[in-house]
Nucleic acid binder design. Structure first.
Length: 570
RNA sequence: ACGAGUGUAGUGUAGUGGUUAUCACCGGGCGUUGCCAACGCCUGAACCCGGGUUCAAAUCCCGGCACUCGUACCA
C-alpha cells in the first residue's frame, strides 16, 4: 500500500475502471484522461443531475452547440487575443514570465506587439524581476487554444476548438429570445467538452487539456435584476470576500446577509451562489469542504462586475470548481459590434408609453437626390440624426464620411414630429455560472473515499451519494446454484427495467469479496439471493455504509426502488 | 516551461550486466465452503517507447513519453 491517501485513491480509480490515463498503451498523454465503465456512469449521473437541477426551474433550457468554432467568434469574444500569451524566460535564473506582464508600464498596449518587438524592448529596458539580470530567451507565443481548419486543405477557414461552451450559447441568443417569447429573464445551459492547451497540466483530473464543462448563461435586464427570496437558505456558508475590499477576511454568512452587507454585489449572483451550493451538496460534495471566494478587482476580467469562485477542498487543496461571474453586456455587445447583428438585444417595454415631441428637418428627396447623387443617402441619414436643428438655412451639414453638404431651404421641410415611444432596445446582461465537471467528479470521489479496517485489514468504501452511484444495486446470489442464479438474474432485469435504475449481478468468488468489490465502487445497496429466496421470494438488502441488513420481498424491493431510495426500508 | 527524481503484470513491488524476471494481492477455471476480501489445485498477466554501448541490457548511455516533487504559469 502506498504511503499517501491520494496514491491509494488514484490506484483504486484505475483498478476499478473509474478514471485512468488516456492512450495508456502508447505512453499516455498528459492532461487527458478516460472515464472507464464505472467512472463514465458516475460522470453521466453528475451531468444529468446538473441539467435537471437547472432546467427544472422553468426559465432555463438546454442547448448544444459545436465544439469547433470559427475564428471570428473567438476574435470577438477576446479569446484569440487573450490566449496568445507571449512567454519569455530568463536564461540566467530560469524564471518564466508572461512577456506582456513584464512590459506593463513600459508600453501602453503590450498585447499588440509582435514577438520580435517585445524581444527588443525586453533586452533594452527590462531586467529579470527574480535575479535582476537582462538575459532573455527567445519570446515564444503560448496559444492556449487548439487551432484547426474547417474545410479542405488551404481553403479551410481558420477555427479553434472551443475553450468554453459559453460562446455557443451567445450565438443562440436570438433563438432563445424567440423561444422565451421575447421576455427576460431566461437562461440556457450547455454541457460538453472544452479544450485548452495547458502549458503544464498536472494534478490528474484537475488540469485537463480536454475537459467536461457545464455552463449556464442567465440573461437579465440590468435595470430589473431577478431578486429571488434568499431567506429560504438559512444556513451560513463560508465566504472569502474581495481581499482588497472593505469586507476582506473569511466569514460565515447567509446569502441574504452577504447581499445586504454589500459583500455579494448583485442579487442574482447571490441566488446562483445558493443554487450552486445546493447542487454540489446534492451530488455528494461534503458541505464543510465548500467555500466561495470573491475575485479581487485586479483578478477580475475588465468587464465583470462581481465574480465568485466556488472552491472545493480535497487532496489538491482548495480548487476552483465553479466560477460565477456577472459578465454584464460584454459578450453580446462584442458580438453585435463584430458581426453587425441586430438580434442580440432585448426589448424593455415602458410602463406607460412616452410621447416625444421632436422638431425635425424632413428631407425633400426630389431635390436632395439630383443635388447630391451618390451622397444623397448619407445626407438623409445625417439629417435624421441632427440633435439640434440649425436656426436658419442654408447651413453646412456634417456627414458621416467627414465631408459637409450645404443644405438649402428647398431641400427640407421643417416639421414637428410627435411620436409615441413604447419601449426601448437594450443589451441584456448575463450572469454565468461555469462548472468544471471533472473537478467536481474528482471531489465527489475524494470526499466519498473512506478508508477503514475490517478484521485488521485495510478496507476502502466509496460512500457515494446514491444519486451519483454507478449502480443502484448489486445483485449477489449467495452461491453459484442454478436456482439462485435464476432468481438473481430475474431481480437484475426487473431492476434494470425501472427507468433510470441500473443493477449489476455478480456471482463470482466469495460473498465477502463481492461485498468488498461493490463497496469500493460505491454501490449503495447489495441485494443477496439466498436459500430463503428460493422458498419465499425474499432477499436480503445490505446497506453499504454500515453493513446493516434487512430482509424483504422482491416486490417490496422493486416497489421501493422505483419510488425512491431503499433507505425507506430500514 | 525549467530543474531533480521515478518508470517492472490490473494494483503494490523484488531484482544494479548473464535468472525460466521475485512476491503478494488481482483476473480466469475446477473443487470445496456458504452472508462480509475463506481454502486447495490449476491457470492468466509485466521490464514505458525508440536508439546506442556490449558476446550479452529490465539493469549502463542518449533521446522521447508519462508520473512525482520543487520553482514558474494557470482566461
Amino acid at each position: 500500500m502506498s504511503e499517501r491517501r491520494i496514491d491509494r485513491l488514484t490506484s483504486l480509480l484505475r483498478r476499478r475502471g473509474v478514471v485512468l490515463p488516456s492512450f495508456d498503451i502508447y505512453g499516455g498523454v498528459s492532461g487527458l484522461v478516460d472515464y472507464g465503465p464505472v467512472g463514465a456512469r458516475i460522470k453521466r449521473k453528475v451531468v444529468d443531475s446538473w441539467i435537471d437541477h437547472w432546467t427544472s426551474q422553468g426559465d432555463i433550457v438546454e442547448v448544444d452547440s459545436p465544439t469547433l468554432t470559427p475564428e471570428a467568434v473567438l476574435v470577438a469574444s477576446g479569446h484569440v487575443g487573450e490566449f496568445n500569451d507571449l512567454m519569455v524566460s530568463c536564461e540566467s535564473c530560469e524564471s518564466t514570465f508572461r512577456a506582456d506582464h513584464l512590459l506593463e508600464g513600459v508600453h501602453d498596449n503590450p498585447d499588440s506587439l509582435p514577438p520580435d518587438e517585445v524581444s527588443t524592448i525586453l533586452s533594452k529596458a527590462i531586467s529579470c524581476p527574480t535575479c535582476s539580470e537582462t538575459n532573455w530567451s527567445e519570446v515564444r507565443p503560448m496559444n492556449l487554444m487548439f487551432s484547426t481548419k474547417i474545410g479542405a486543405m488551404s481553403r479551410g477557414r481558420s477555427a479553434y476548438m472551443r475553450p468554453e461552451t459559453a460562446q455557443g450559447m451567445f450565438m443562440l441568443y436570438p433563438a432563445l429570445f424567440r423561444h422565451f417569447k421575447q421576455s427576460l429573464p431566461f437562461g440556457a445551459v450547455q454541457t460538453g467538452k472544452g479544450y485548452r492547451n495547458e502549458i503544464s497540466p498536472r494534478q490528474g483530473m484537475i488540469r485537463l487539456r480536454e475537459f467536461n464543462m457545464a455552463e449556464l448563461e442567465y440573461f437579465i435586464d440590468p435595470e430589473l435584476p431577478p431578486c429571488p427570496d434568499l431567506s429560504v437558505w438559512s444556513t451560513p456558508v463560508t465566504m472569502i470576500p474581495d481581499p482588497e475590499g472593505e469586507h476582506a477576511g473569511e466569514c460565515n454568512l447567509t446569502y441574504s446577509d452577504a447581499l445586504s452587507k454589500g459583500i455579494i454585489r448583485h442579487p442574482t449572483v447571490a441566488w446562483f451562489l445558493a443554487r450552486t451550493m445546493d447542487f454540489l451538496v446534492n451530488v455528494g460534495v461534503d458541505q464543510s469542504k465548500i467555500r466561495f471566494r470573491q475575485h479581487s478587482g485586479t483578478e477580475m476580467a475588465h468587464y465583470a462586475e462581481d465574480c465568485w469562485d466556488c472552491e472545493l477542498h480535497g487532496e489538491h487543496g482548495w480548487i476552483e470548481c465553479v466560477g460565477i461571474a456577472n459578465r454584464t453586456c460584454h459578450d453580446l455587445e462584442s458580438h453585435e459590434a463584430a458581426s453587425g447583428s441586430k438580434l442580440l438585444r432585448a426589448w424593455r417595454q415602458y410602463e406607460r408609453p412616452r410621447k416625444e415631441v421632436k422638431d425635425i428637418l424632413s428631407p425633400v428627396s426630389s431635390v436632395i437626390g439630383p443635388a447630391f447623387k451618390g451622397r444623397a443617402g448619407n445626407v438623409v441619414e445625417a439629417l435624421s440624426q441632427l440633435v439640434e436643428l440649425p436656426s436658419k438655412l442654408p447651413f453646412e451639414l456634417q456627414l458621416s464620411d467627414g465631408t459637409t453638404a450645404k443644405i438649402t431651404p428647398e431641400m427640407v421641410t421643417r416639421r414637428t414630429n410627435e411620436v409615441t415611444v413604447h419601449g426601448e432596445w437594450f443589451t441584456p446582461h448575463v450572469i454565468e455560472p461555469a462548472f468544471g465537471i471533472d473537478r467536481i467528479v474528482w471531489h465527489i470521489l475524494d470526499h466519498a473515499f473512506t478508508e477503514t479496517e475490517k478484521e485488521g485489514e485495510p478496507y476502502s468504501v466509496m460512500r457515494l451519494n446514491s444519486r451519483v452511484a454507478p449502480y443502484d444495486v448489486a445483485v449477489l446470489p449467495l452461491f453459484d446454484k442454478p436456482e439462485m442464479l435464476e432468481i438473481a438474474q430475474n431481480v437484475t432485469s426487473i431492476v434494470n427495467s425501472i427507468p433510470g435504475r441500473k443493477g449489476e449481478m455478480d456471482s463470482t468468488k466469495s460473498i465477502g469479496r463481492r461485498y468488498a468489490r461493490v463497496d469500493e465502487i460505491g454501490v449503495p445497496w447489495a441485494v443477496t439471493v439466498d436459500h430463503d429466496s428460493i422458498e419465499d421470494g425474499t432477499v436480503t438488502i445490505r446497506r453499504r455504509d454500515d453493513q446493516k441488513q434487512i430482509r424483504c420481498s422482491v416486490d417490496d424491493l422493486v416497489d421501493t426502488l422505483s419510488r425512491g431510495d431503499l433507505s425507506a426500508l430500514f
